[in-house]
Design a protein around this nucleic acid. Structure first.
Lengths: 200, 200
DNA sequence: TACGCAAGCAAGTGGTTACTTGCATTCAGG
DNA sequence: CCTGAATGCAAGTAACCACTTGCTTGCGTA
């Protein structure tokens, strides 16, 4: 079923550009290189197609993992955040459109947001690990710290093109800046200066 | 010109619900309690009306100010962030729609984003003041810290209804949690415990 | 009273939308 | 060679869209 696959991909792309209302069946079919009628032979409605496309997107973006036991917090966090940031930035249009569908198509919205929820869970687990294994002192809330870091990455990835004046530093620097601020916030030791940055 | 005012308000409301494509002239006129033709007598096109409505929104949300010279950083920040968070949460639908218009209507998007840019400027100024006047030690980047705190507030306000599982704590607690994390991040003294929280 | 302005109303225009129908084409497998 | 499934194509339907036109109505003011 190559056609079905092409339609899902085309739907996601056109949806990212034009949103739910703007993504017409005609345009999606064109993008997929098939006849509009074929679209309706594979999916019973436009809504059905978009839902499937967003589910495929959510399934495709598998969870990036952080180590079960922290060893080099700064390096590990930076590498993970960089990967997460790349995903956010790459799919920023789709994410923006998905969020804005919350009022009219809550199901579509929820499907797209699954990714963020999984990502946040993973980071929270890791930060709790930092606390448990003595890498960070103090009485901070792991969930709040998680949401703060993910929120910084998210806002940066969403706002960098819509408000460039707010983000004069590079995307690469951004991740390090946020991670270092977070590490300071949770009272993390300045890191046992070992093999620095060996990230993709 | 009471009708014009009503149309601007109605346009913003309907746009927040349905987005640019969903906000039909018929629906906006209905919401404003006037005839659809009247809409076109006041604005030369739907695009024109929406642009004016977003400009009115941006103008209306005047800048909240932080003190020129910090005295009680924690209290001042919490009060200011609470006000900012309230605005974000109140207008979250409109903000989401505005952001998602970036590809198709960059002008509308830019107009709506002005608010955020002004808010970020104000916070950055204040954080630099904290550094200059010895309230916070260390070598942190004021812009990154600004974007981190605003990003946390923004993501929370946008995500609280679309991803409730990520935000089990109350909106009120959220602001304090983020502010305290930021203060720790920038090495702020735990505050000269004076007259606590006297916020609206 | 007469004028002019703002608004309402009914109708229409030309275009687009999601989705359907009927029929012709291609092509792989028995 | 025949069958059946997947696709293309042309056309059509009923609804909706932004926007226009022509005419009427109400109201303040000169």
């Amino acid at each position: 079923m190559d056609v079905r696959e092409a339609l899902l991909e085309a739907a996601a792309k056109v949806f990212a550009e034009l949103g739910m209302r703007g993504a017409t069946t005609k345009r999606i079919a064109q993008e997929a290189g098939v006849n509009e009628v074929t679209l309706f032979r594979h999916f019973k409605s436009k809504d059905d197609l978009l839902q499937a496309a967003l589910e495929a997107y959510a399934r495709r973006s598998q969870a990036r993992t952080l180590p079960d036991h922290p060893a080099h917090p700064r390096e590990e966090l930076i590498e993970w955040c960089r990967a997460h940031y790349r995903d956010l930035h790459k799919h920023r249009s789709l994410i923006r459109k998905t969020m804005s569908e919350h009022e009219e198509h809550p199901a579509h919205c929820a499907t797209g947001m699954q990714v963020s929820v999984r990502v946040a869970d993973e980071l929270k687990r890791y930060l709790n690990g930092l606390k448990d294994e003595g890498f960070a002192a103090g009485t901070w809330d792991a969930l709040a710290a998680t949401n703060m870091l993910i929120g910084a990455l998210f806002s940066d990835a969403m706002g960098r093109d819509t408000m460039p004046e707010r983000y004069p530093y590079s995307m690469r620097d951004a991740v390090e800046l946020y991670v270092d601020l977070l590490l300071a916030a949770i009272g993390a030791k300045p890191a046992p200066r070992s093999g620095r940055g060996r990230h993709a």
